[in-house]
Amino acid sequence: MVKDLYEDNATNSWKNGETVEASYICGYCGHEVSSNRGMALQKEQGGIGYSIKPYGVYICTHCHMPTFIYKDIQVPGNRYGEPVNNVPEEVSSVYEEARSSFAAGAYTGVVLLCRKLLMHIATDLGADSGLRFIQYVGYLNEHHYAGARSDEWVDQIRQFGNQANHEIRINTKEEAKRIIKFCEMILKLNYEYPSIAYDNDSNN
């Protein structure tokens, strides 16, 4: 078995050129890439450099921007979720801020921002202002803006929002992923997909 040189007291050093290949989602362009070019973070023992793990600065094969990777750390991180077209600017800015917070590892911030985002969406789609969060989520569900067969998702979002706002609790990466994906789904269903259908009708 190869000794894990990254867990002992050996000296860190950098090596330009080719390094151990890593697959990751680029925080700049959002593409999933596999790269072995950049600057390897290696260990040195007895004057010999070892690069046995995908640690270092990697150059994206799509946009050619640098990303630092070490264990579960990636800088800049992956902006989870997909961009959504035809979304009102105020709504879109909150969604993009939530994605940026995910890239920074601020997962509780993601949940709180998505909580605010759902309130913005509900208001834009006709809900009264000044309602409680749970009422806004209920409005989206009752008027079928959340899509069919989404009751379980809606219940989880209610729980995430209430926990983040009223309990001393840090949200996890998986919870942040789930709520971003839920918000992305609602945005696509109510803004992007209808605009595509409208464009198709206009061209016929």
Rank of each mutant, 00 (worst) to 15 (best):
K116A: 14
V110S: 11
Y6M: 07
S129H: 09
I186A: 05
N204Q: 04
Q159W: 08
N9R: 07
K173Y: 15
E142T: 07
Y50G: 09
M185I: 12
V33A: 06
V110T: 09
L112Q: 06
L112A: 10
E175A: 13
H143E: 13
G105W: 03
P66G: 13
S101E: 05
M1K: 14
A146G: 04
G109R: 04
Y80P: 01
W14Y: 10
R178Q: 15
S100L: 11
T67Y: 01
V75N: 06
I196Q: 13
F133Q: 01
N203P: 01
I69W: 00
V137P: 02
K53S: 06
E96R: 04
C114K: 06
E96Y: 09
I25F: 02
E192H: 11
A103W: 10
N190G: 10
S23K: 12
N36T: 06
D155N: 13
T108R: 12
G105M: 08
C29I: 04
C26R: 02
G130C: 01
P194E: 12
K53E: 09
F182Q: 10
I196Y: 13
G17K: 00
R37K: 14
K43E: 08
N36G: 10
V94G: 06
R158V: 04
Q42K: 12
D199L: 08
Y136N: 05
E32W: 05
E175T: 13
S202C: 02
E174K: 14
C29P: 06
F102A: 11
G130I: 03
V84R: 00
E18A: 00
D8F: 11
F182G: 14
M39N: 06
Y80V: 02
A164W: 07
Y198L: 11
C60T: 09
N9T: 14
R37Q: 14
F102P: 08
V110C: 12
I179T: 15
E175H: 12
N78G: 00
Q156C: 04
I121E: 07
L118W: 02
E90N: 10
N200F: 03
N190D: 09
N141Q: 10
H64T: 08
Y6P: 05
A104P: 03
D8G: 08
K173L: 15
K53P: 03
I121M: 14
R132C: 03
P66A: 08
L113T: 08
N190R: 05
Q135P: 00
G46E: 14
R169N: 12
Y95W: 02
H64N: 14
M39A: 10
N141E: 09
Y191E: 03
D151S: 14
P76C: 05
C29G: 02
D201K: 10
K173A: 15
S51V: 05
A146V: 01
C63W: 05
C60F: 14
S35F: 13
R79H: 10
C183D: 11
G30R: 07
